[in-house]
Design a protein around this nucleic acid. Structure first.
Lengths: 187, 187
DNA sequence: AATTTTATTATACACATGTTCAATAAAATT
DNA sequence: AATTTTATTGAACATGTGTATAATAAAATT
């Protein structure tokens, strides 16, 4: 039997395309299911067959971006033979460059009208990435709490970056991050 | 002239009360404007005179909670004669106790269906409170970035706390916070 | 190529949204 | 107490939501 029905692929593709096209004109929370279906020439009932609301359609796209975040983060590891997880240099993380690359979408993610769901997707991803590096430094019980602290601290910088309308470059953000970490260590 | 029209006070009060009462049965995102107005015996048009959507009504209530957060945070300061802003002991912060107190509402705030707006209200408040303490440690330009880092780090712990369904006590959270900070300083 | 499976469509329904308007009633002002 | 001001009401309207149904058409299977 076939893995996926071609009709579903076609329908989802059309809806994705329609949404992305409409996002050039309107913010996410102003786009209705009806309008997307009109644009995509897909029956509204079909939309509800695959998604529950507009945000679910966008979420599917956002998950693609989360994949790129993982790839970006992993990138520095590619250049070393042995994986020294515990010793990743903060100056080599690529998170800020990733956000800069998808600036357009992070403006949506950080919009105040958008549900928390996207933020949590992002949080989970950063959390998971950092977790590789802070293994064993804390005992298991508090590990989650520590990585939640660390991951969300970085997201705090991105929130502030977003509020400053991404004025700083990704490299400047990285330097700032290193500076803040150094401050923490030395005090 | 009168500061505020009594009719407005009455209307807003009835709507607030209706929403809070309905929140015992349903999550925020399942409560419609129509249902609130039915419950409050207020015309739907009147609702739209004061609020744009259900979330705005809840936001007004949440701002009250933000006031309590400030009061809670300030509490330790009351017991010292001279305000030594720069030297607040992390073990004396009352943020976790405040969240524990309003647990019921923070479950709403951290729900994935709720707009980012509340998170930002919380972020701003914690940010502002911490800002008093980290004055002058960084030069003005990066001060915002540093406090955003710090404030959101704490919110990260609260997110994780919420995910563990507030199993830990506020005091345990405070101890963990101190432990994490110590780890940062020593390394 | 014929048959089976199932995604899509068209249509309809009850309900919610967001806005507008004239009529009303409640509060503030004189 | 009479008058002015304005918040509230009731009604209507176009549009959106979410769900359900039978008819259709497209893909998968034989």
């Amino acid at each position: 039997m076939k893995e996926i029905d071609l009709r579903i692929v076609k329908t989802k593709g059309a809806l994705q395309e329609a949404l992305l096209s409409m996002l050039k004109d309107k913010p996410l929370h102003m786009i209705s299911v009806t309008a997307i279906c009109r644009e995509a020439k897909i029956n509204r009932g079909t939309f509800y067959m695959h998604y529950g609301k507009v945000e679910d359609l966008f979420e599917e796209y956002f998950k693609e971006i989360m994949k790129d975040l993982t790839d970006s983060y992993m990138e520095p590891y590619k250049h070393v033979q042995i994986l020294l997880s515990n010793e990743l240099d903060p100056s080599t993380i690529r998170i800020f460059h990733h956000v800069e690359k998808y600036k357009k979408f992070y403006r949506i993610i950080f919009s105040k009208y958008v549900p928390m769901a996207y933020y949590y997707l992002l949080f989970d991803q950063v959390n998971q990435l950092l977790n590789q590096d802070i293994d064993e430094k804390h005992h298991a019980e508090n590990k989650n709490m520590f990585s939640a602290y660390q991951a969300n601290a970085i997201l705090g910088m991105i929130i502030e970056w977003h509020r400053q309308d991404f004025q700083k470059t990704a490299t400047e953000m990285n330097n700032l991050f290193v500076e803040i970490l150094n401050f923490h260590f030395r005090k």
